[in-house]
């Protein structure tokens, strides 16, 4: 699927091992292989979740209110060292899924860092907070390191959505992406319907301004 036909650019950001790649895998391919890493294979014999280097891209169509929206999903490297690269990938995103690990308090600090970045640089990017690995805290409340209500309080200020997801069970993942697509469709700014026609150069136009201040 060509990225050029993507309506809605979604980027995943967050600390390493926060579950970004798993989330994308679950959503795009409905699979999860995180528990027993040595058994994880793609068709090409590689484990799924080697730490992401650079970035990965996948796309998926989703039906919302009788409209088909093509989402292009960018999975980024979580390591702080590659932060500059991740910045490149959120440019022009309409939605960002900022991930944190419900069992890792520091991952939420990192999520806040990305939220601040996005607010500063991407005015039109809607933010979705995704607390990942919900299955781990569902059965063992003592493992929860990020309180749901403090996240929703934080999100309220931001007008961000909060989801607690599990790529292992699939909990709330379709809902998360559906919500993203729905918000996109509802947003009047995205509804000028006609796909943008690339501007053509009018060959008869003489360039009007042939100079600049320098």
């Amino acid at each position: 699927m060509s990225g050029s036909r993507v309506d809605l650019k979604v980027v995943l950001l967050g600390k390493e091992y926060g579950g970004k790649t798993s989330l994308v895998e679950r959503y795009l391919h409905d699979r999860f292989h995180g528990d027993v890493p040595y058994q994880n294979r793609t068709s090409k014999g590689r484990p799924f979740y080697t730490p992401t280097i650079g970035a990965a891209f996948g796309a998926k169509k989703i039906e919302v209110d009788s409209r088909t929206v093509t989402m292009g999903i960018w999975d980024t490297a979580g390591s702080e060292r590659y932060e500059a690269m991740s910045r490149i990938y959120y440019r022009g995103a309409k939605a960002a899924i900022v991930c944190y690990d419900l069992t890792d308090g520091t991952s939420f600090d990192r999520a806040k860092f990305w939220v601040e970045e996005l607010k500063r640089n991407e005015e039109f990017c809607k933010i979705y907070l995704s607390g990942n690995k919900f299955d781990l805290v569902e059965n063992d409340k003592s493992r929860r390191q990020v309180d749901y209500h403090s996240v929703t309080d934080y999100a309220e200020e931001l007008k961000a959505e909060v989801f607690e997801t599990s790529s292992k069970t699939g909990h709330q993942i379709k809902e998360l992406f559906f919500k993203i697509a729905q918000d996109y469709v509802k947003e009047p700014r995205n509804n000028d319907a006609a796909p943008e026609v690339p501007k053509t150069l009018n060959l008869t136009d003489k360039p009007k301004k042939a100079d600049c201040a320098c």
Binding site: G3, R46, G54
Partner: peptide
């Protein structure tokens, strides 16, 4: 007529 996202995906999939 691949664009950046297609190229990235394609390049990642060249693996092996």
């Amino acid at each position: 007529n691949f664009d950046f996202s297609d190229i990235l995906k394609h390049v990642n999939e060249l693996s092996c």
